[in-house]
Simulated scan of single mutants.
Amino acid sequence: MTLAHQRSLARPSKVLVTGEFEFSAADFNAIAEIAKAQAGIDLAESKATLVYSRLAKRLRALGLKSFAEYCDTVCQNEEERGGMIAALTTNVTRFFREPHHFEHLRKNILEPLTDQVRKGRRLRLWSAACSTGQEPYSMALTVLSVFPDAAERDIRILATDLNPHVVAHGKSGIYRKDELADVPQNMRAKWFEPVAGDSDSMRVSDTARALVSFRELNLMGSWPFKGPFDAVFCRNVVIYFDRDTQSVIWRRLSGLIEDDGALYIGHSERVSGPAVSVLKADGITSYRKKAGLRP
């Protein structure tokens, strides 16, 4: 139990949500405190109903009787802290979501580097919140459209997420056929294969999967790599953070991007803080790193 929760229990706390479980301001504040410390998530009290609906499922799964019990569990159990963060974040994704980003990647980053990469230059891309893998695989398919022989080149895509369950899904590379609706037909035919015993699903081909390395990573923690990356996708992530934390994330990301490399962000996000001085807008929610500058 957090110190804030202990203090709030010493005095009456208003009820924010009534239902199967009573959800008080003390419960909400304890959860918000943990979410901020664990993953940088900034929860306003106006989100109380959303938090309740997401976490009530966790209480039922754990057989708990109250949110006070749940707060105790989260404080004492690291695995459940991860489960709480996963429940509070939204893993909405699809193949080639925001298609202009992949078009920009192909035309402005990959194609201009064609000769250099064929002569041995390394190419590194990062999907910084990969969810269930559709984003990094869309990046891989875009790479393969320019470098069909990417397996023979020094090309790698890093895919990270703090949720181990979505990382495991991404590693499997298996998706329902209806999830492939936004994948161009020629790519589906070339880079996806049937799944034995499952006629409703397809698996990303070994060639495309080999380009992508999936890892668990909390963006609020240390980053065990140095880059530089030629392109970074960090979309619809910082919307969960307060303004100061957003600035820190943009600064850290921009420091790992290659000169003239690209950063792609969510449609409702804007770069802020020190990174503004080293990134220039280059299309819809697309930025390029200015040469020779560091945030």
Score class of each variant (00 low, 15 high):
residue 174 I to G: 11
residue 111 E to M: 15
residue 152 E to H: 13
residue 169 H to N: 08
residue 194 P to Y: 11
residue 176 R to N: 09
residue 160 T to L: 09
residue 111 E to Y: 01
residue 159 A to D: 12
residue 108 N to W: 09
residue 195 V to H: 09
residue 110 L to T: 01
residue 118 R to C: 02
residue 116 Q to R: 15
residue 121 R to Y: 14
residue 199 S to R: 14
residue 177 K to R: 10
residue 115 D to N: 09
residue 162 L to W: 07
residue 175 Y to E: 11
residue 124 R to E: 07
residue 141 L to A: 08
residue 130 C to R: 05
residue 171 K to I: 12
residue 111 E to C: 10
residue 179 E to W: 09
residue 177 K to L: 07
residue 192 F to S: 07
residue 169 H to K: 15
residue 107 K to N: 13
residue 196 A to Y: 13
residue 156 R to M: 00
residue 139 M to S: 07
residue 171 K to F: 11
residue 199 S to A: 13
residue 124 R to C: 03
residue 185 Q to P: 10
residue 127 S to Q: 00
residue 116 Q to T: 11
residue 185 Q to S: 15
residue 181 A to N: 11
residue 190 K to T: 13
residue 152 E to W: 13
residue 168 A to L: 12
residue 194 P to H: 02
residue 125 L to H: 03
residue 195 V to K: 01
residue 146 V to R: 05
residue 122 R to Y: 09
residue 138 S to Y: 04
residue 126 W to I: 02
residue 149 D to F: 03
residue 162 L to E: 10
residue 136 P to A: 01
residue 191 W to Y: 15
residue 108 N to I: 08
residue 159 A to K: 05
residue 117 V to I: 07
residue 143 V to D: 00
residue 143 V to R: 05
residue 145 S to P: 14
residue 127 S to D: 00
residue 151 A to K: 15
residue 147 F to I: 07
residue 178 D to N: 13
residue 197 G to M: 09
residue 120 G to K: 01
residue 179 E to V: 04
residue 169 H to R: 13
residue 129 A to H: 08
residue 114 T to I: 10
residue 149 D to Y: 11
residue 167 V to Y: 10
residue 130 C to F: 07
residue 109 I to P: 03
residue 134 Q to M: 11
residue 129 A to C: 08
residue 147 F to S: 08
residue 138 S to T: 04
residue 118 R to M: 00
residue 153 R to T: 02
residue 169 H to V: 12
residue 148 P to C: 00
residue 177 K to G: 05
residue 143 V to T: 04
residue 175 Y to W: 03
residue 119 K to E: 14
residue 180 L to I: 00
residue 191 W to Q: 07
residue 180 L to F: 00
residue 121 R to T: 12
